[in-house]
Amino acid sequence: MSVKMQINGQEVQVQAPPASRLLDVLRGELGLKGAKEGCGEGECGACAVLVNGQVVNSCLIPLGQMDGAKIVTIEGVPGDSPLLQSFHDCAAAQCGICTPGMILAATALLAEHPQPTMDEIRWGLSGNLCRCTGYGRIYEAVTQASTGDAHG
């Protein structure tokens, strides 16, 4: 099946079986390896990407549904995104395997709630598991990205 998508702002056409997981297409056909496979069943969020602005698990999306979709992976997050800087400032990436998915989930969260409450952060990121940080550095990074102040 041939599917046309816009990935990180670029039109691409992919030829692959329609039931292929978007995750495999991104990592295999397109070489975008920022999306990781942690569980393969939509529980951990390591494979999270944005599809039409919404955070989704790419391991649960068949290519057949992606015709015309606008997809953003970690490779396509704009360099001036405050989240990239705040994750670095707050040491929010430890082993780093959850980080791309976490940043995309946080991107979607901040798009919906530019000044999120702690509760909104907690619920907004609850589809992304991190085993290293205990989430403290991540809360701080998202807060900093929304307010410009790490202790805001």
């Binding site: 955070v55 989704v56 698990n57 999306i61 609850s126 589809g127």
Partner: peptide, 9 residues
Amino acid sequence: TGAAPIQNR
């Protein structure tokens, strides 16, 4: 139901 990435799909 699940979390945000699930609810979006």
